[in-house]
Design a protein around this nucleic acid. Structure first.
Length: 283
DNA sequence: CCTGCCGCCTGCGCGC
DNA sequence: TGCGCGCAGGCGGCAG
């Protein structure tokens, strides 16, 4: 499940592997992969033809590549998406959705996606950030992330803390795994009412989020279910760094209480019932 | 405007 | 053995 560290590792791989190269041919093997393209597959392919890739940027879990045409190639990996650099002579991956070939004889760029929640599109490049992702907030590792503004916005919310951390318009890049890890480190319950948080606790959550995201980045991200890989098809090594996510029934690494898995937004939350007690006021 | 919920997808593992 | 179901979960769209 790619979150900030995993998407950033992919971005770095794209920067090294495809920036400066020129697209020669594009093939869409599954129309759902370009469902956000207004004109469909034909438009997507046409807009990429003969474009040079100028840079590789990221906002939260979105990637975008400015093109020599002035357009942006925008991508989201969803839950199971992979952008991999594949030698042309290798057989296609089972879930290959989009193939991009370059004018040079190097590796192709493949968008591979089992569950097809991810996708690509090309849109006009008006402004710094693509219109598609204009609503996505900065992430907590972004130098321009505004702690004061975040704290104020968080306290204006009337919802649960984890729900707020997952809201990409408030803060981006955080998903189910890193939200659970940061809450465990901060000893806060996922349902804690946001309006009851004091500034020191918000600072604490931010510090723990930054720490776990940075540690994961240093370990090349988390490969939990085998679906996340970098552009060279390699897994991340941070799975061992997870202290609470996926550890249902195992002892808390701080106090020994058994980690619980609880239903949350049609998925799961993991917490220590002792370190992360349910507060009086929840959402 | 704000909040919360649903549907979209496929493969895997488990229980019967 | 084989089948059905729960689960993984980010995000856009929409209802209230």
């Amino acid at each position: 499940m790619p979150e900030l560290p995993e998407v950033e590792i992919v971005r770095q791989g794209l920067e090294l592997g495809i920036v400066g190269r020129t697209i020669a041919h594009t093939q869409v093997l599954h129309p759902r992969a370009v469902r956000r393209q207004p004109g469909g597959s034909a438009e997507f392919v046409g807009l990429l033809q003969n474009c040079q890739i100028l840079a590789a940027h990221r906002r939260g879990k979105y990637l975008w590549l400015p093109l020599s045409s002035g357009d942006f190639l925008v991508g989201h990996l969803g839950m199971s998406g992979q952008l991999v650099l594949t030698p042309p002579e290798l057989p296609d991956e089972i879930h290959l959705r989009v193939r991009i070939q370059f004018s040079d004889p190097g590796n192709e760029l493949h968008f591979v996606d089992q569950r097809t929640f991810g996708g690509l599109l090309v849109e006009p490049g008006n402004g710094d950030v693509p219109a598609t992702i204009a609503h996505i907030a900065r992430d907590p590792l972004d130098p321009d992330f505004d702690d004061d503004a975040f704290a104020a916005a968080l306290r204006r919310r009337r919802t649960g803390l984890k729900r707020a951390l997952l809201d990409q318009t408030l803060m981006s890049g955080v998903g189910n795994i890193y939200a659970d890890e940061a809450l465990w480190r901060a000893k806060l319950h996922w349902a804690r009412a946001t309006e009851t948080l004091r500034r020191p606790q918000i600072n604490d959550v931010l510090a723990h989020l930054r720490a776990v995201l940075t540690e994961s980045l240093a370990g090349n991200g988390t490969t939990f279910d085998g679906l996340y890989v970098n552009v060279n098809g390699e897994s991340g090594q941070f799975s061992d760094g997870l202290k609470v996510y996926g550890r249902e029934g195992q002892p808390c690494l701080r106090c020994g209480a058994l980690i619980r898995r609880e239903p949350f937004m049609n998925r799961s939350s993991f917490r220590c019932p002792h370190c992360q007690r349910q507060p009086a006021q929840v959402h």
